[in-house]
Every structure is written in structure tokens, then in C-alpha cells.
Design a binder for these strands. Structure first.
Lengths: 119, 119
DNA sequence: CTGTATCCTTATAGATACTG
DNA sequence: CAGTATCTATAAGGATACAG
């Protein structure tokens, strides 16, 4: 993988899937099985119903999540598709990275912020 | 790594580093050594000078990239810090994913788009 | 060549209220 | 409970022109 990486739009495509606040976290939250919207919201923390719906629709559009309407209203479940499941490993790689190096990033931010104050 | 993943803000921090169009690609472009801004722009494709500067400043702020002013004007180099280098592996994981599954994503998009047209 | 300064368009996200 | 509808705020990205 050389500079195809930069040229090939498939790489861009993968990054675009991560280039948003909720996509990766929603995929991760669904890793163990289907969830209903309310439960999903609880796990995600401060996400509004509107943003959750948008996010899930986006993931559905990209083939990563499927929506199942079991019954009629108020009986909905979201789950990972097979394709969505393949994204868990890369996502986890970032999670692991965060646990190892998150402190260093925050330290760098503090440093940069202090420097900015001095200037 | 259970639901700490969702609660711990360090995970958010890592995702935020990816949650933007240019951050990951710039890091990747710098993987083999320092680059001057003009060369960096060439490798990235359609990025404006303004956006490149913003991106690189952001990465600098987070301790992932360092700017070296060799001489005075028009003699600048950007390179990965040690911390920035640790992000290459997770980024590559997404690149690999894209090459394996990018076609499936695009197929899903086409499918969804067609379905939308019918509806 | 590097970087800043404007201006503009769009997407994301959040808050809130409301419908089935 | 699921989802839509508004409205608002903000940030990202892009185009372009200009300064050091």
C-alpha cells in the first residue's frame, strides 16, 4: 500500500466513514448484538433522537447497519451487517491506541495551549 | 475494552483525530519522512493552502506533527513526531479495510440510492 | 514558496417540541 | 418509544486574492 492510499478513492471512502462524531461509536455499541434505539441512545450518552436517526440512516446507506422493524411502531432494532462487523477491528485499533497514547495527546494539547497563552 | 470505550473520553479523543477529512491522510503522507508544504499539497490532491495550514496546525496542536523552520521563509518542513508515528498502524488498518471492502460499500450505496429512487 | 485574509457553502450537531 | 420537524450555532472545507 503505497500512494495508492492517497489516490484511490476507496481509502477516502473508509476515512469518510470515520470522519464524523457518531459513526464509529455506534458501530462499536452494536458489536455484541442488536439494540433498540432507546438502549442505543443510553449507551452513547448525549445524543439526540434526531442525530441518532441521522447517524443510523447514514450507516444503513453504507451497508454497515441494518434496521429491523419487528412488528410495527416502537419495535425496532438496529444491528451490524456482515460488512459492518468487518469494521470493528480497525475501530478497536483506534480504541487501543487511545488508551495507550491518549494521555500524551492531552499533555501535548496542554503544552500547546500554555504556549499560546504566553505568546 | 468494554463500555469504557464509550464512556472514556480518550476514545472520543482518538476518534476526533480521525473525524475530519485531512488529518489521517496528512499523517499517512508523512510516514516516510519530512515534507515541505508544496510537496505535501501535491501528494494530497485537491487541498488548498489554507486548509493544509489549518490541518497541519491542528495536528501540531495535538502533538502528532512538528513544524521545522529551516532557515527563514519558504524553508519549512513538516514531519511526524514519535507520537504521530504511533498512529500509522491504526490508520493503515483502515486503509487495508478500504481495499478489501470498499467495493462492497459502494455497492451498498448504489443499492440504497436505487431504492430511494423507486420510493 | 509559505502563509494569511476574506468570503461563501454545506454538513454536523444540538435543543426542543411535536406526531404516530 | 420511534421518529420527524424546526430552528440555531458552529466548524470544515473550498475558492480566491494577496503579503512576506
Amino acid at each position: 500500500m503505497n500512494d495508492v492510499f492517497l489516490a484511490d478513492c476507496r481509502a477516502r471512502l473508509a476515512f469518510d466513514l470515520m470522519a464524523n462524531t457518531w459513526n464509529p461509536v455506534v458501530l462499536w455499541a452494536l458489536r455484541e448484538g442488536p439494540l433498540r434505539p432507546a438502549e442505543l441512545r443510553r449507551r452513547l450518552g448525549g445524543i439526540s433522537t434526531k442525530v441518532l436517526t441521522e447517524t443510523v440512516r447514514r450507516l444503513e446507506f453504507n451497508g454497515l447497519v441494518s434496521r429491523r422493524d419487528c412488528g410495527r411502531t416502537a419495535k425496532v432494532e438496529y444491528s451490524l451487517t456482515d460488512l459492518g462487523t468487518t469494521l470493528l477491528a480497525p475501530i478497536e485499533a483506534f480504541g487501543e491506541w487511545a488508551f495507550r497514547y491518549g494521555d500524551e495527546v492531552m499533555a501535548a494539547q496542554d503544552e500547546a495551549a500554555r504556549f499560546r497563552d504566553l505568546a
